[in-house]
Design a protein around this nucleic acid. Structure first.
Length: 578
RNA sequence: CGGUUCGUAGCUCAGCUGGUAGAGCACGUGACUCUUAAUCAUGGGGUCGAGGGUUCGAUUCCCUCCGAGCCGACCA
């Protein structure tokens, strides 16, 4: 039986499952279970004086049990929270037959099972609001034991904190660490908050291709895939920017998308290979307007979530109340390093980098060097929200040149807590300039810059028809969520963060008959499997029968199987050794 | 990619200078009709991440690999 692979507790639960069926109880019933209340609603609103909730029906997972003979307390957890239930034998079994209590509730149900209960609410002598159960229904039997977390006075005992378990088995995390559910509710609330604002302005939510023939709109290594029917290479998008701007060309006033983007790059506390960005493009606006709009978006999200703009992140207090500080990149570098780089050429910038111990390579041009200086010396210092304005042209190939300052573009990034949260431009709508910028990117990539952008000729064609002056902005939803929910890692705001696969133990096992065919007595088959010889092929690889013989005898002794040990020659014969 | 810490029962964790493993919760059995980390009694449960090496003997020491966290590098 494959039950040999199951733990004792799993086997017992499977036996309970069979017993339930034998008693005529379907452990996985199909019918809708109509509930009339949620746990939190009862906890919040029950008052003995009102005598309300006297006929309630709720469903949830059994999270703890305290059985005291013919009466029991248990905790039921539904989507809203936990509530205590009180199950008394003579109430759930009013007649002679006490099976539902004695056998089903006490013996066959476990922590983790999902049941429905009907009953009335009361307060115990200890004052705890409790559902006095008159009838219960098995809704789903759990055959795998759940980690048991206990709690007293807000202190958790044996809480599951192992990040591997939490991220790989998020379902378990969500069950036993219910505060984690709040993080994800808040994530959705943030998205809702933004969506409300955009819709109220009449902007259109759209969907654009994830599979793209040209991975445009950002500088990043893409994931590559292949379409069989078209027999062509496709890329998972690194950005959706170029498609959204095509829609502005098409005549929409404003378009936005909550988009999953994919970048085939490193992973750390702030990077996951797939991540969510909200990008919005609005015609006839510029980046100054967009800065104010970004302030409004962030402020609204904070208010919708917390009712205030002052938030705590780690040991920091961050105030998201506008206006945010605005500083251009040159001044930012001066502010943080004391060095004024305005008007410097490439050689001058390299000297500054050397002086400040900022690493640089030969393939870096002016823009990259400035980016590098900012990235390593300035960025992390902007804890309070700050717009960094006017980025070098070289690293902003989709951005309009600054209206008055030469050499820079009308671009800003919003820094909060030393991290980029948003990125926005006055969009480049000059098709001739755009083509030139793409060509510059091409020569950069020929110089060895593997993150230079690809040329998207169709996008240039769209611009040739004419795109209104437009401002666009992207916000990293994951990072914004981290910030607003005070989570230290991007993995904590992604329901299923990317993980390396678990090493699968080989599931292939030889049948008992195959061992018997080798002359192995039936009683020794399971011990052999337990010792790792799960297939006869593995058995045939054994070179020293004496070692196997020792292991088998040792296993017999250790597990007190009481089997008669085989002789060395017997073992030798199984292996077909000479 | 480098440094570092870690992987032991379903869960949380002990385990000394090498002698094949312990606790609490959970689970089984019994007692208990207002408990709440329920309690009391009793019992079972482990290829100590995988593979190799040293050794009479490895959970422990060494090497390789797999997985995770943190720090750094690279990267937006």
């Amino acid at each position: 039986m494959n039950n040999m692979n199951l733990s004792e507790q799993e086997q017992i639960r499977r036996e309970s499952l069979d017993e339930l069926r034998k008693l005529g109880i379907n452990p996985y019933p199909a019918a809708e279970y109509k509930t009339t209340a949620f746990a939190q609603d009862i906890l919040d609103n029950y008052t003995p004086e009102k005598n309300n909730f006297q006929d309630v029906c709720l469903a949830g997972r059994i999270m703890s049990r305290r059985i005291m003979g013919s009466a029991s307390f248990a905790e039921l957890m539904d989507s809203s929270g936990r509530i205590q239930i009180y199950v008394r034998r003579d109430d759930v079994c009013p007649g002679e037959d006490k099976m539902m209590y004695n056998t089903v509730f006490k013996r066959l149900l476990d922590i983790g099972d999902i049941i429905g209960v009907k009953g009335h609410v009361f307060k115990t002598q200890m004052g705890e609001t409790t559902v006095h159960v008159e009838e219960f229904t098995v809704l789903s039997k759990s055959v795998r034991p759940l980690p048991v977390v206990k709690e007293k006075n807000g202190i958790l005992f044996d809480a599951v904190t192992d990040p591997e378990m939490r991220y790989r088995q998020r379902y378990v995390d969500l069950i036993v660490n219910p505060q984690i559910r709040d993080v994800f509710r808040k994530r959705t609330q943030i998205i809702q908050s933004m969506r409300e604002l955009f819709n109220s302005r009449g902007y259109l939510e759209v969907e654009t291709p994830i599979l793209q023939p040209i991975p445009g709109g950002a500088s990043a290594r893409p994931f590559i895939t292949h379409h069989n029917t078209l027999d062509m290479t496709l890329y998972l998008r690194v950005a959706n920017e170029l498609y959204l701007k095509r829609l502005i060309v098409g005549g929409f006033e404003g378009v936005y998308e909550f988009a999953k983007d994919f970048r085939n790059e490193g992973m750390d506390r702030t990077h996951n290979p797939e991540f969510t960005v909200m990008e919005i493009y609005i015609a006839f606006k510029d980046y100054n307007w967009m800065m104010s709009f970004t302030e409004e978006i962030v402020k609204k999200a904070a208010l919708d979530l917390h009712g205030k703009t002052e938030i705590e992140y780690g040991d920091k207090v961050i105030n998201l109340n506008p206006p945010f500080k605005r500083i251009n990149m040159t001044d930012a570098i001066k502010e943080n390093t004391g060095t004024d780089i305005s008007g410097m050429d490439e050689a001058g910038l390299r000297a500054v980098c050397d002086k400040l111990n900022v690493p640089h390579t030969a393939s870096m041009g002016k823009g990259k060097l400035i980016n590098e200086l900012f990235g390593s010396k300035c960025e992390h210092n902007y804890i309070q929200p700050t717009f960094i304005i006017d980025y070098p042209t070289e690293t902003s190939p989709l951005t309009k040149m600054h209206r008055s300052k030469p050499g820079v573009t009308e671009r800003f990034e919003l820094m909060i807590n030393g991290k980029e949260i948003a990125n926005a431009y006055s969009e480049l709508n000059d098709p001739i300039d755009q083509m030139e910028r793409f060509k510059d990117q091409l020569s950069l990539s020929e110089k060895g810059d593997d993150e230079a952008m690809f040329i998207d000729l169709d996008f240039v064609r769209a611009l040739e028809y004419g795109m209104p002056p437009t401002s666009g902005m992207g916000i990293g939803i994951d990072r914004l969520t981290m910030l607003l929910t005070n989570q230290p890692s991007i993995q904590d705001v992604l329901l299923f963060p990317q993980m390396k696969p678990e090493s699968q133990k080989s599931k292939v096992e030889s049948q008992k008959e195959e061992y018997l065919a080798l002359g192995v007595p039936e009683k020794w088959v399971e011990p052999l499997k337990k010792l790792g010889f799960t297939t006869v092929a593995k058995l045939k690889e054994v070179e020293k029968h004496t070692k196997l013989h020792q292991d088998l005898c040792g296993y017999n002794k250790k597990h007190k199987l009481g089997l008669q040990n085989p002789s060395q020659d017997d073992v030798k014969a199984w292996l077909n050794l000479k």
